[in-house]
Simulated scan of single mutants.
Amino acid sequence: MNINAVHHIAIICSNYEVSKDFYVRILGLEILQEVYRAERESYKLDLAVNGYYQIELFSFPSPPKRQSYPEATGLRHLAFEVNNVEEAVEHLKSENIKVERVRIDGITKKKYTFFNDPDGLPIELYEK
């Protein structure tokens, strides 16, 4: 097997318009394609980070809530690299998004912080 890269991350949201606004307007991801699949009553929104296709945002009618525990088995969080964590934090706060305090990674000495998407998915910002 020859894995080249992570192709995409799929996220199911509870409110499509709210999540679309969050990922596109607030986080600044680029819309590559938006499709409504009538047979599934579902939107599929393909988003790019810095020109690279990376996130699929899905809506489904009445998706079940996912249990979220910080140290539970499975995907822990989604992380984005930013040039300046403090600037990113100020932007998020200006959009009334609660952000944890900025911390320093004990190994890399890089700054990082966490916040949540509209459905509570933990998102990390990690300074380049």
Rank of each mutant, 00 (worst) to 15 (best):
N4Y: 13
N4A: 08
A5Y: 12
H7I: 12
H7Y: 14
H8A: 10
H8C: 07
H8V: 14
A10M: 12
I11F: 03
I12N: 08
Y16R: 07
Y16W: 11
E17L: 10
E17V: 10
E17H: 13
V18T: 13
S19E: 05
D21Y: 11
Y23T: 00
R25K: 15
I26L: 11
L27S: 03
E30A: 09
I31S: 10
Q33C: 06
Q33E: 15
E34K: 14
E34P: 06
V35E: 13
V35L: 09
V35W: 07
Y36V: 06
A38N: 13
E39Q: 09
E39G: 15
E39R: 14
R40N: 15
Y43F: 10
K44F: 11
L45I: 02
V49W: 09
V49T: 08
V49N: 05
Y52M: 14
L57M: 04
F58G: 03
F58V: 03
P63E: 07
P64G: 02
R66M: 14
R66A: 11
Y69G: 05
H77Q: 09
L78I: 14
A79K: 07
N83Q: 13
N84M: 04
N84A: 11
A88F: 04
V89Y: 02
V89K: 03
L92I: 05
L92R: 00
K93C: 09
S94I: 00
S94H: 01
I97Q: 01
I97E: 05
V102T: 14
I104H: 06
D105T: 11
T108K: 10
T108V: 12
K109M: 08
T113H: 03
F114W: 00
F115V: 00
D117G: 01
L121G: 14
E124Q: 10
E127Q: 06
E127N: 01
K128P: 02
K128W: 07
